[in-house]
Design a protein around this nucleic acid. Sequence first.
DNA 1: CTATCTGCAAATCTTTTGCAACGGA
DNA 2: TCCGTTGCAAAAGATTTGCAGATAG
Lengths: 158, 158
Amino acid sequence: MDTSTRLDTAGERRDDADGPEDLKRTLHQRGFRMTPQRQLVLDAVRDLGHATPERICAQVQAVAPAVNITTIYRTLDLLEKLGLVRHTHLGHGAPNYSEAEHQHVHLVCHECGAVTETPTDLMNELSSRLRGSVGFELDVTHVALSGRCRDCTQEAGA
Amino acid sequence: MDTSTRLDTAGERRDDADGPEDLKRTLHQRGFRMTPQRQLVLDAVRDLGHATPERICAQVQAVAPAVNITTIYRTLDLLEKLGLVRHTHLGHGAPNYSEAEHQHVHLVCHECGAVTETPTDLMNELSSRLRGSVGFELDVTHVALSGRCRDCTQEAGA
DNA sequence: CTATCTGCAAATCTTTTGCAACGGA
DNA sequence: TCCGTTGCAAAAGATTTGCAGATAG
């Protein structure tokens, strides 16, 4: 399926369009081959915002049912090495993949499991405080914070 | 083991449960039995500071080789419901258990894998900011922050 | 044409579950 | 005695690996 229509990229990255050609070029630069599977996985990550390999697999298989989950894992790995996606652990176990450019902090509700995103600049103060006190260089984009989301707090508290 | 009916108020604990007698009392209060395995697991968690089930199992088996890892998992679960230990996910996958009293924020270096601890009050500002902006009630003790520790930052930067 | 990729099956690894035997209270 | 607990084996779920055939360049 043609996938070039949904790329209303939240980020900017204006050098070249985020289209298939871009992926192809990035792959070739490192001696890898362009395949439909790779494009589909990258598209899925972009469409879903953040998702587990399982979820990404479902998304890809909706279009190309023959694609195996093994390929999803291998491709996510590759795309991560290419710097196109990144992953975070949101607790529990399932890693969570999202576009590398799309920087945000994940908020995980351990009541309902909902995952929200919030701008990284919320962390600025903590970040510099950690640097100062223990010399720890916080990776703001790889952080997952857990707690209770608004809905669950209201249900439980009220 | 069907214990779910007795555990819905888990999370609080008395402020003087340190010796074997206290564990025994805490268990009995909720209709559970005192066993050597349970004491060993709790001791292991306390001795190790923070550790994975695997690591805890090794520690317990050093004393009582017959204890099965299944029991470790079940016991950690129980101790957590009793509010005696808590677990955090430090990325990767392996959950990390520590004493419930021992409140701290985990800093995980994704360069060398080192896990440091830091006081929870570092998070106060972030905590109230999250509450205000998105109504998210941060669980400060369950947080793991990733980044680069002082040593790795110096090695890479200098 | 050739080396890279993919799909499949099987192997790992971690955690959970069913069940009969064991053992606290 | 009674029923919660344990150990073992097997199941379950997630990810990795080996390999032969498919395919991009």
